[in-house]
Design a protein around this nucleic acid. Structure first.
Lengths: 235, 235
DNA sequence: ACCTGAACACCGTTCAAGT
DNA sequence: ACCTGAACACCGTTCAAGT
């Protein structure tokens, strides 16, 4: 007894991310990761509860290097922009992991830290309680949604498809039924994910600024007494 | 030769969706679906190319029943709201399929039709070309992102966790480091996905309305000549 | 405490043989 | 043309035996 550990979670994390980055998500399995570490599959279970647990580890590895300046320039809009962009860049630098990011959830200091920073920035717009939650959800959703668009957007290239082929695919649709869709598909091939992300984020931030209507009350902070009156069934 | 087909894609589609709805996504396999149809696994390959193909079929099944009124009430904002909400409801009514929706892409008339309708509504805000693309991306991303939030949101309940347990989990975090995160976690347990979706959508629509700045030129329609000047590297 | 091979109950898919 | 069983090369994970 008292046998010294051969590995640790940090090593698995790094090896798993490297494997996914280099060989793709499909290449990750308990057996392949073990082989990459020079051991048997069962050894991994000393560090990881299940395969899902391993996948969460990979997501954590990606989110771990989100960095943003703590001293913030300018107003809250710029602060929101910087933090959201930092998160987006972290996700984008490991495109193979995106399906896991969409699908697994990591509860790690890196993510919590970014969330808290984002909340702090959004709170500077004058929001608290449910309004702050909504603002946070909106920015998060946009981020995740734009990451997903990169993976499988209806207008982006398919795997191994050229821009010309994509346009051709859309042009093959009935022109009278989908005029705007066909048009936009053409535009999309000349656009960049980076530009689109910033433009959509600006759109949302514009909304956050516009809706910061002064006289609406209900601005107490740290309260659980946020009323639910405006919350129900809008249509 | 000339042997009559025992099934068709439509039947597989319906059976697969029913299986996922009732038994969960993990229960879907070529073998289980075949068994549900009373045949062997290999028979399915007469209708479906691969397992991925089958998964896309399931996504199509979900998107197939998106419905929205063709005659639109009120202004373009209301129109955007109605279409986005219709899409969101379709997704939400099959929560087990969400991971597939996030991860696979369906190119089906139902989805194209909804996209075209959304584009038409957004175009009424005075957008065309790249601006229209951005508006479309933003609404789509918000939709997808809010669907994902339901699956794995950092503030929502974990599987089989009560609201109290969620709050407790967040309260266990260091209060000085994550004051707003802890606060918002409490607020989230009293909120509803429906209310949050509508609120975030309104936020974005507000931004779409605010950014509809008049004198900015470049409004030609159906053109591929949308310039890329404002598109590059914002920061 | 940690390591690990054998084994089990699954997968998706190829192949070859049927009608 | 469509059907289908056998087989192959994988999975994640349990178990039991090791140190």
């Amino acid at each position: 007894m008292g046998r010294p550990a051969k590995f640790n979670r940090e090593q698995l994390k790094a090896a798993a991310l490297a494997l996914v980055d280099e060989q793709g998500l499909a290449s990750l399995s308990m057996r392949t990761l073990a082989a990459a570490l020079g051991t048997g599959a069962m050894t991994l279970y000393n560090y990881v509860e299940t395969r899902q647990d391993l996948e969460i580890l990979v997501v954590e590895a990606v989110m771990a290097d989100v960095r943003w300046p703590k001293a913030m320039p300018g107003d809250w809009r710029e602060e929101v922009r910087v933090i959201a962009t930092a998160l987006w860049h972290a996700v984008r630098s490991h495109p193979q992991v995106i399906p896991l990011i969409l699908t697994r959830r990591s509860r790690t200091p890196a993510v919590f830290g970014a969330a808290e920073a984002l909340l702090r920035a959004l709170a500077r717009s004058g929001r608290a309680g449910h309004e702050l939650l909504v603002a946070f959800r909106a920015v998060s959703a946009l981020l995740i949604g734009m990451a997903q668009a990169e993976l499988a957007g209806p207008l982006t290239l398919q795997a191994g498809e050229s821009a010309e082929e994509t346009v051709a695919r859309f042009r093959a649709l009935p022109q009278e039924t989908y005029p705007r869709l066909i048009d936009i598909a053409t535009v999309a091939t000349e656009s960049s994910a980076e530009a689109e992300f910033h433009a959509t984020l600006d759109l949302l931030i514009e909304g956050l600024a516009a809706e910061r209507a002064p006289a609406r009350g209900r601005r107490q902070r740290g309260s659980k007494a946020v009323s639910a009156d405006r919350m129900q069934a809008r249509r």
